[in-house]
Design a protein around this nucleic acid. Sequence first.
DNA 1: GCAAGATCTGACCATCCGGTCAAAACCCTT
DNA 2: AAGGGTTTTGACCGGATGGTCAGATCTTGC
Lengths: 201, 201
Amino acid sequence: MPRPKTRIQLKNSETILEAALDVFSAQGFRGATLDQIAEVAGLSKPNLLYYFPSKEAIHQALLTRLLDTWLDPLREMDANGDPVTEVMAYMRRKLELSRDYPRESRLFAIEILQGAPRMRAAIEGDLTALVAEKARVLTTWMDQGRIARLDPVHLVFSIWALTQHYADFDVQVRAVLGEGHDPYAEAGQFLETLYARLLAH
Amino acid sequence: MPRPKTRIQLKNSETILEAALDVFSAQGFRGATLDQIAEVAGLSKPNLLYYFPSKEAIHQALLTRLLDTWLDPLREMDANGDPVTEVMAYMRRKLELSRDYPRESRLFAIEILQGAPRMRAAIEGDLTALVAEKARVLTTWMDQGRIARLDPVHLVFSIWALTQHYADFDVQVRAVLGEGHDPYAEAGQFLETLYARLLAH
DNA sequence: GCAAGATCTGACCATCCGGTCAAAACCCTT
DNA sequence: AAGGGTTTTGACCGGATGGTCAGATCTTGC
């Protein structure tokens, strides 16, 4: 099954990946079992293995697809736009990603936490290159005096950390906030203020 | 073995917890095996189970001991100190914790990521109470106009997110920075600037 | 409506893993 | 140096888990 071809293949591959995302993001690679994924997907275990050669392969497929989604918001940061607006928009998009795709965020987090055993190459390649490129853009803006001077890479780290926190540590965030809060709405407000103050001068 | 008593018990319990921290923080609860822990500890598997009744119990012992260490820096934030200094010092202590105890940071992160199945109570109890208390302190400082007005709980979240990022996503941080960087030194600089600008008005 | 594939499944296997246990080895006190 | 408690271990168990396979069932193009 190199590439899905028929309608059924497409649909079932999709169902499997969706179920796998559920289970892997909640239990990690080792913690997830094929039986669990099969149950969530509503398929039999041997049927999963008809579509993917191994548990490993399902996980790999998820990660591969994930990285692109994950980097898109940064890719969109436009060197020709207004600096503060661009950074803010990037932060917003990343926060929305946390809100709308928390499972993806956790899958990614677990992978990195465990030393990125199945993602090393992508991290050291695509991701590092993209950050380097955008760091140059940020540096240019700083040189032009359009945003305050800061270490551009750590600025990017800060956006990652602050936005992903709300997805990855969701349980903790909700416990600490208690009832009657909208974590993401409040986070949006807070981060807006934070980056306004940080970038201004 | 309710409490370690003899010298041997004390030493071996310690060795086991140390090894378990290594393995659990790298692989998660499910991913870790008693054989791995035993090997790292230099003891036989049945011997581990002579000191702890189960894998679960080893993990629990680690987490219990962890939470205190983890909350100490926040406890030390002094309502009678200078606001900016106190917040900065808290951030510093937390960053140092990330630098000096990355395994503990990752153990904690994995636990929360997976929904805190073995820490729910502590999160909803001690941690939430401590944050509520310190949020009141921060609010008082804001009311007195001694630091800029911000959502105090999200301010605490930001410190957690920004400091733990360097331990939890270490692989990514190092990959993106490349050779010849001291992540924690740079982070210290960056965060100092960030909180200076955020808290001033 | 009928082959030829594509899809699906029950039964099964080998391995791994947490945990047990009886007995061996090792102290420590006297 | 002997005896009683403590510590350690090899051998083993039962259940879980990733993966296989032969054959049953369903689709699809003709």
